[in-house]
Design a protein around this nucleic acid. Structure first.
Lengths: 221, 221
DNA sequence: TTGTCAAATAATATCGATTTTTTTGGAGCG
DNA sequence: CGCTCCAAAAAAATCGATATTATTTGACAA
C-alpha cells in the first residue's frame, strides 16, 4: 500500500519511523479505535525493540490518537459521534480565528505561498489518495500559517488529522465525494487573496460543515 | 487491595513520579526555559533509570512544556512575549466558548460542584501557595467542566498550566497581587450560578486580561 | 589568524534482560 | 451456583549495557 516513504524521509530514527507508521495505521483504521495496543504485538509488526515502540506511542498521545492508561499500557483513542461533533465545532472556531489573523497580516509572500499550495493540490488530484491528502492538508494549513500563532496552528493541525480518521471510518478510505470541492477551494482562496476575511471564513466554515454533515450521515454511530 | 495510599505521594509509577517532578520544575523555573534537558543529569537528579525519564519527557511534550529535537534530545520549551500573548488570547477565546457551553447545560449538580470548589479555594487561601494553586485551578476547571467538551477542556487546562509558568517567571513564585481577586472570583461564580453567560464571560475574560497585563508589566522580555 | 577535517568525547537512541504489575483461570468455600 | 482468594501467565515498566549519532577538540594547512 504505502511503499513510497523511504525515498522521501531523511529522518532515519526507529522512533520516528514507528511514529509515522503507527500514526497512519490508526488514521486509516488498520488499528481499530479503542483497540489495545500491546507492545509485543507492535514490536513484532514493526520489527523493532520495545523502546522505540513505547516512545512512538507516547508521541501519538500528544496527537490524541493514542491514550495512555497508567501501568496498563496504551490503546488507540476511541471514536464517537460526540467526539466527531466536538472536533468539527472546534475546527470551525479555531480556523475562523486563525484565518482572520492570517488575512490580517496578508502580504505578497503569503499570497504566493497560498497560490503554490493550491496549484500543487490541484495537480495532486489525479494522483493516489495519500498524495492528494498531503497536498490537501498543506493547502489548508497554508491558509492559516500567516497568523504567526504557532499554538493555534498546532491545534488546527491536530484537529485536521483527527478528522481524517473519521473520513476513513465513514468512507473506508479517501473516497471524496465528487461534490464541488474544487470550486469550494477556489472560492476560498479567491476570498483570501482579496483579503476579504468575512467571505473567506464563511466559505471555509461551510466547507467544513458540509463535509461534516456528509461524514455524519455515513457514520453508523 | 490496598486502599491506603499516602495522601501526598501517590507514587504509582516511576514514570509518573518523574513526570510530576519535572513538570513542577519546569513550571516553577527550577529548570530554565530553553534549557537542554540531559537524560543523564535528570537521571541522577531523580535517581531513576533512563527509560522513565525519557518517557516522562515525552509526556511533557504533550503539555508543550518540553520540546523534542529529533536525534538531539529534549529541551525545556522556550518562553517569550509572543508565546505569552498567544496563550492569553487563546485562553480568552476558548474559555469563553467553554463557559458558555457549561452554563447552557447548567444543572443543580454542576452548581453544587462549583460552590464546593469555590469554598475549597477560599479555604486554601491561608495555606501555602502550592495548595492554593491546585484549588484555584480546580475552581477554574469546574467553571467549564459542564460543557462536556473534553478536548476543549483539555486545551483550557493546558493553557492554564502554561500560564502558570509565566506567573513564576514574572513574580518568581505564586506572589499573587493582593488585587480584588477574591471579589472577582465571587462575581464570576455569582454570574455563573445566575446562568448569565454574557456577564460571567465578561468577568472571566477581564479577570484573565487584568492578570495578563500585570504579568506582562512584570516581564523583562 | 582562520578554516577544515578527523579523532575523541559526550549524549542520545536502542536493545535484551529483569523486575513489577495486571490479568487470567481455576479450586475451594459459603 | 456465585463468590473470594491464590497461583500461573501475560503484559508493562524499568534497568543496565551497547550501538549510533551529535558535538567538541585540537592538529594542521592555507
Amino acid at each position: 500500500m504505502n511503499m513510497m516513504q523511504d525515498a522521501e524521509t531523511k529522518e532515519t530514527s526507529a522512533t520516528h519511523g514507528a511514529y509515522l507508521r503507527l500514526r497512519e495505521m490508526i488514521l486509516t483504521g488498520e488499528l481499530e479505535a479503542g483497540e489495545k495496543l500491546k507492545i509485543e504485538k507492535l514490536r513484532g509488526l514493526l520489527d523493532l525493540g520495545a523502546s522505540p515502540v513505547r516512545e512512538a506511542l507516547s508521541l501519538l498521545t500528544s496527537d490524541k490518537l493514542v491514550e495512555r492508561i497508567d501501568q496498563r499500557g496504551f490503546r488507540a483513542a476511541p471514536v464517537g459521534k460526540a467526539n466527531f461533533d466536538e472536533i468539527l465545532m472546534l475546527r470551525c472556531s479555531l480556523e475562523d480565528m486563525a484565518l482572520r489573523a492570517s488575512i490580517a497580516r496578508a502580504d505578497a509572500a503569503w499570497e504566493e505561498r497560498l497560490v503554490l499550495r493550491h496549484y500543487h493540490m490541484n495537480k495532486a488530484k489525479s494522483q493516489e489518495a495519500a498524495v492528494f491528502e498531503i497536498a490537501h492538508k498543506a493547502f489548508h494549513m497554508a491558509l492559516i500559517d500567516n497568523a504567526e500563532l504557532p499554538m493555534l496552528q498546532g491545534y488546527c493541525s491536530q484537529l485536521y488529522d483527527l478528522n481524517i480518521r473519521y473520513r476513513y471510518l465513514a468512507a473506508g478510505g479517501a473516497t471524496y465525494q465528487k461534490r464541488s470541492i474544487e470550486t469550494e477551494h477556489q472560492e476560498i482562496i479567491d476570498a483570501a487573496l482579496n483579503r476579504d476575511a468575512d467571505t473567506a471564513c464563511d466559505l471555509l466554515l461551510s466547507h467544513y460543515r458540509r463535509t461534516g454533515e456528509y461524514l455524519s450521515s455515513q457514520m453508523d454511530v
